[in-house]
């Protein structure tokens, strides 16, 4: 008998709980913007006044590039713990949708960050950017990253508007060959490994100082030989016709 009284009380409690739930229900927009709230806590769409300017912008980057990176974080080819946990149980289809969403977003670029490099270092960087170093089999950065360094659809990211700390960490990751980024040998990691410490330092200072202008270039602008060189990265072209 005691049992049934308890049961009734329970039912009552359960119902009153359910009622409060109904009376104050929240409207959740059925949008991707709402679904990626956990991402935009770090990757805001306006330039971020964060404690450490380490979070890279992702808005407006080529969709294929974002798709590849997200799968890399999920599958342990690129390491950043907070994102690995978020992406752990996401399907490729969902990741592709998220990549497209961020790719289509408009971004307000931060003001250029003066580099203060001496002229000889500026020369060194500009040479790498515009002509590369054939002796070391380094093509000019702008042949792959686009004339205006704003990237090429759909796999090659732009190089402007990225924070210095982030750039330095990426080059470090590739060069150490560690889990940060360098685990899989691809066209970019091979190039990064050939750069000297001085070049990396200067590049990571020079790039954030450039004013951002221009658009991501169309895929046809990329030299077929370079497409060949980056075959690993371009493997899922079918999604981006």
């Amino acid at each position: 008998m005691k049992f049934s009284i308890i049961t009734i009380t329970t039912l009552f409690l359960v119902f009153s709980l359910a009622n409060t739930a109904q009376s104050t229900s929240i409207k959740v927009p059925d949008s991707l913007e709402q679904r990626v709230k956990p991402c935009t806590i770090c990757h805001e769409d306006v330039d971020k006044t964060s404690l450490d300017a380490y979070f890279p912008r992702i808005a407006g980057k080529p969709a294929g590039y974002l798709y590849n990176q997200l799968r890399n974080f999920r599958d342990g080819r690129r390491y950043y713990q907070p994102m690995a946990i978020l992406l752990e149980n996401m399907s490729d289809e969902y990741i592709l949708e998220i990549a497209r969403y961020f790719s289509s977003m408009h971004y307000t670029y931060p003001q250029p960050d003066p580099h203060g490099l001496p002229p000889n270092e500026i020369n060194m960087v500009e040479k790498l950017i515009n002509s590369g170093d054939p002796a070391r089999n380094i093509p000019a950065c702008n042949t792959c990253h686009g004339e205006s360094l704003m990237g090429i659809e759909p796999y090659i990211p732009g190089l402007l508007g990225l924070p210095h700390a982030y750039l330095a960490a990426q080059f470090g990751g590739w060069r150490n060959g560690g889990i940060m980024r360098g685990q899989t040998p691809d066209c970019m990691s091979e190039i990064a490994k050939k750069l000297t410490q001085e070049e990396v330092y200067a590049l990571a200072r020079w790039l954030p100082a450039q004013p951002v202008s221009g658009e991501t270039a169309k895929s046809e602008t990329l030299d077929p030989a370079l497409v060949q060189r980056c075959e690993d990265i371009f493997s899922e072209r079918k999604h981006f016709k």
Partner: peptide
């Protein structure tokens, strides 16, 4: 934080920030 799994019955889950 975390996302529930993407499954056929919940393809595009909403997530919780870290």
């Amino acid at each position: 934080g975390g996302y529930p799994p993407s499954t056929a019955g919940n393809k595009r889950p909403y997530g919780m920030p870290p």
